[in-house]
């Protein structure tokens, strides 16, 4: 697992944005994490609590929005959810190779002052 490295990159991105906008404090970071991203939200939060020390984000909150995985069936032209990570179209039973959602690993926004 590499949540610490990911959190470090996220925090650097956030701090860079905050500084560029002249902010003196970061109050919140919002992240979007897909179910297939290979990243565990709890581990991110734990890493965040360690890494934020002595930065503009020392007292910031971390909000994580999780995105369930879904696939696209080219034959049926529909998107279908894959809660159990079985990539089979429920209508035509073809396996889908196109993951439409679930790989997200993004810094969505930050709240600063």
């Amino acid at each position: 697992m590499h949540e610490v490295g990911i959190m470090q990159n996220t925090l650097s991105m956030a701090l860079k944005q905050a500084q560029a906008s002249g902010a003196t404090q970061v109050h919140e970071l919002r992240m979007r994490i897909g179910a297939m991203s290979g990243v565990v939200p709890d581990a991110l939060t734990f890493a965040f609590e360690v890494l934020r020390k002595d930065t503009l984000a020392a007292e910031a909150k971390l909000e994580i929005e999780t995105v369930p995985a879904s696939c696209w069936c080219a034959r049926c032209q529909t998107e279908f959810p894959v809660p159990d990570l079985i990539y089979e179209c429920p209508q035509c039973h073809e396996p889908s190779v196109e993951l439409r959602r679930g790989l997200e690993l993004e810094l969505v926004s930050i709240e600063v002052s």
Binding site: H27, L105, L107, S109, I110, E111, V112, S113
Partner: peptide
């Protein structure tokens, strides 16, 4: 950090809070 902050410094909380959209992939 984060000890004994019962009395906030003089800036009004929420006064200039603003949201910056980033929307960037982490990797």
């Amino acid at each position: 950090h984060g000890h004994g902050h019962e009395h906030e410094p003089n800036h009004e909380p929420d006064q200039e809070h603003r949201t910056i959209d980033v929307n960037e992939a982490i990797l």
